[in-house]
Amino acid sequence: MSRALAQLLARVLAVLALCAVLALLSDVFLTRGNIVNVLRQTSLLFFLASGLTLVVLTAGLDLSVGANISLAACVAGTAMKATGEPLLGAALGLGIGAAVGLCNGLMVALLRIPSFIATYGMLWVLQGAAYAYMAGQPVYGFPRAFRLIGVGTVGGIPVPILLMAAVLALGSVFTARTIWGQQIYAIGANATAARLSGVPVKRRLILVYLLSGATTGLAALIFLARLNSAEADIGGELTLPAIAAVLIGGASLFGGVGSLFGTFIGALLLTLVLNGMNLLEVDARWQPFVTGAIILAAVWIDMRTGRMFAARAEKGG
């Protein structure tokens, strides 16, 4: 058993432990309805965090994802409202998301602006553009065909969950099984060594930020379809939870470590906390405190068991 696998197993165990506690305390937690509910809520955070995971793998950070959602959702939403064309809206949302990602990538790879600063600047540019564009008014009521990607089901499973499974599967194959994926890990582990061994570092960095922008655009579309409304600060509060999901999932800010499945687990954990508090009707005053306490406890369990598994794995050979 490799060290990475051991830690991933520990992470799954931490989530299972939380689930066990919730199942004991609430008799509706383990119902099919609630499980579907939790996964659907997880998907929003996961889309946002999936591209971000690749950025973190290269030892970078993308602070613009929340603001990117705001602008992409607002432009796509108003376009659909004006024309009634779901495809135009989808193209605009994905296009803006990816274009912003490309700009971030160019700033980081070519202009060598540190990613934190480049994407922090981008955050303000995007948020400002969204405020100016919307002028304080929300846009709502989108075509039914478009809303299906948020509220529709296929074979009884909500579309966002299916999309999440697809992104998770394709993304995992991409990062773990392709040369490009391996090069992304190599850049994060040691950029100089990667460059010397022939990895086209600049092009891969641009790709990574582009993908982060594209998944953010996808997240914006699912958001729009789910909420049936967009306003200028729709994504503002999502950046920090998305970064938290990536890091709780085991990625390192120093790069080279992490996986999409880990990020999924991180997003699931954050969603379970809210679900659990609602089901158990934790007093509103205590919810922020409980949120923090559960996250810290889960990460602690994860680290303890991860170390234990890893030590056993090394002893075993």
Partner: peptide
């Protein structure tokens, strides 16, 4: 039967309601 915070946000209002509907 329940009083929970949605912080004036539409997304949270929806998600909290989804969770509460389970119970």
């Amino acid at each position: 039967v329940a009083s929970q915070p949605g912080n004036y946000q539409r997304l949270q209002g929806m998600q909290v309601m989804e969770n509460l509907l389970q119970a």
